[in-house]
């Protein structure tokens, strides 16, 4: 059974101030299976966010369509949880209230909301911070909360747009393990966008490599590394082989991207 179908999806942004339109995404196909963890890897500006936003329903494709369980996606919905690169917690809500945002929208009883929130607070290591406002939290803590908020809604799939991109290296590594642990526990379908090769390999079952702008998926690499994964895996020869392979794939694209900008 396949879950998400991306069929010939492309996106052209109208030109600004009479300028030429920007093709952000070439017609792209991708199938994401149930319980898959796929990372989308590509140089910056290649259309990764554009593709993910179309899947989320936050943007409309110029051509093509996205099907989720056979239903065309036309608008955002709670079945596709999203974590953004920028910090998008609601500043006027505490950590707990942020996590309950979607649950309140579903009008779940208070007791049930609390139960679910408690579970994800524990799972994301936020215990003790429930009553903090976002501005009192570090970037890592904010992204944990954003992750818990998306998970609490029990979406069919998680869409993550460079969720750890603004974090320092140590925090980022911890968050990668945290997310991987959560995935290993309940195998929710994940599409994870990143420009970091290590991150793309470490997290993924499959890495979809995108070409330089206008992007399209130029290769899909199966990552056959065992679960559960531990950070020490990043220094194994298998990991290095994947890294060498993807570095080659990406390098060509990064050079193209740099030339286009120059």
């Amino acid at each position: 059974m396949s879950k998400l179908l991306i069929e010939g999806v492309s996106r052209v942004f109208p030109g600004v101030g009479g300028g030429a339109p920007t093709q952000a995404l070439q017609p792209t196909d991708l199938t994401v299976e149930d319980n898959d963890f796929i990372t989308i890897l590509g140089p910056s500006g290649c259309g990764k966010s554009t593709l993910l936003r179309i899947v989320a329903g936050l943007d409309r494709p110029t051509t093509g369509r996205v099907l989720l369980d056979g239903q065309p996606v036309s608008r955002p919905g709670p079945d596709r949880g999203m974590v953004f690169q920028s910090y998008t917690l609601f500043p006027w809500l505490t950590v707990r209230e942020n996590i309950c945002f979607g649950l309140r929208e579903k009008a779940l009883p208070e007791a049930r909301q609390k139960e679910i929130a408690d579970y994800f607070i524990a799972q994301t290591g936020l215990a003790g911070f429930e009553r903090h406002y976002p501005k009192m939290l570090s970037g890592g803590m904010q992204q944990r909360t954003a992750l818990a908020r998306a998970l609490a809604n029990d979406p069919k799939m998680l869409l993550l747009d460079e969720p750890f991109g603004a974090l320092d290296n140590q925090t980022r590594a911890l968050m990668q393990e945290l997310l991987l642990g959560i995935w290993e526990a309940d195998r929710k379908t994940v599409i994870f966008v990143t420009h970091d090769i290590d991150e793309a390999i470490f997290m993924a079952n499959r890495v979809a490599v995108m070409s330089a702008r206008p992007g399209r998926i130029k290769a899909i690499v199966e990552v056959d590394l065992p679960h559960p994964r531990h950070y020490t895996m990043k220094t194994t020869p298998e990991f290095s082989r994947y890294k060498a392979q993807l570095t080659e794939e990406i390098r060509a694209e990064s050079i193209k991207a740099a030339q286009m900008e120059g």
Partner: peptide, 12 residues
């Protein structure tokens, strides 16, 4: 806008 978008993806 990003807060509005986040709320949409949470089912608002």
């Amino acid at each position: 806008r990003d807060l509005v978008e986040a709320a949409y993806t949470l089912g608002a």
